[in-house]
Design a protein around this nucleic acid. Sequence first.
DNA 1: CGATCCACCTGTCGGC
DNA 2: TGCCGACAGGTGGATC
Length: 297
Amino acid sequence: MPELPEVETVRRGLQPFMEGATVLAVEQRRPDLRFPFPDRFVERLTGRRIEALERRAKYLIVHLDDGLGLISHLGMSGSYRIEQDDGDQVPGTFQHERSKNAVHDHVVMHLGAKDGAKNRIIYNDPRRFGFMLFAEPGGLNMHPLIKDLGTEPTGNRLDGALLAKLFHNKGAPLKAALLDQKLIAGLGNIYVCEALWRAELSPRRMAGTIAGENGAATGMSERLAASIRSVIADAIKAGGSSLKDYRQADGELGYFQHSFSVYDREGAPCPRSGCGGTISRIVQSGRSTFYCPVCQH
DNA sequence: CGATCCACCTGTCGGC
DNA sequence: TGCCGACAGGTGGATC
């Protein structure tokens, strides 16, 4: 589930329950996820007030009132849900079929809101590729996992000129370059496939070939930058609009998957008007790539 | 240094 | 119904 738009959707769902709340208690139910939990994980969180919940690339960062940062990554299968004191799931937060998956509830944070309401924020992660680490006060931007992250594809900082500069002289295929978090931060397998389709660029094209002389912007780099921004913006918008009835939908996967043009659509007709191609699946650096060999060059 | 591969886990699905 | 292999939204670390 979690590429940038999903993480942003999670952040927006959690934010109203977390910001300003006090951590009353923490249950840490196993010693590790992908990495061991930090020393004194429970003790250092308990009693703290949460000042802000931030997203950077695919990381969530909980800012605590003593300056400590809790860095949380969802890996491949991590999710958060919120339960109120009465045990009801709060609408608009990610969820699983609770009883079946409770064995994978690895962390429970008991929060007290300013108005006295109590909620539980529950981290569930069957595959345990996710993790939680601390960034010491003032050290977030020097943290090894954070410091080398590239440009966010949200807003308008990512444009054709920047993309051309980043990819200039890169021999890797576009697919690999777009997945490189040091260049652009937050894209994953799905949205890279989707962005390349929107830009009519082949995932196999060498990244450097979309840049002009000396790394200048080109029509291709402009097109790709615009496609990345639009696919991310659309997905965030879909995540947000799905939140209000997420519970009723009873779904984990949810929303934007219905808008996929190429991802997981091998054999389907290319949705581009007049193209007539068929979506292919290939493997690049060990991961599936979906694209249309007719209209993507 | 950069580029490539593997490992880390569990769950699900399709084929036999 | 069961068994087995392939595959899944990510990325740190080893290796070349």
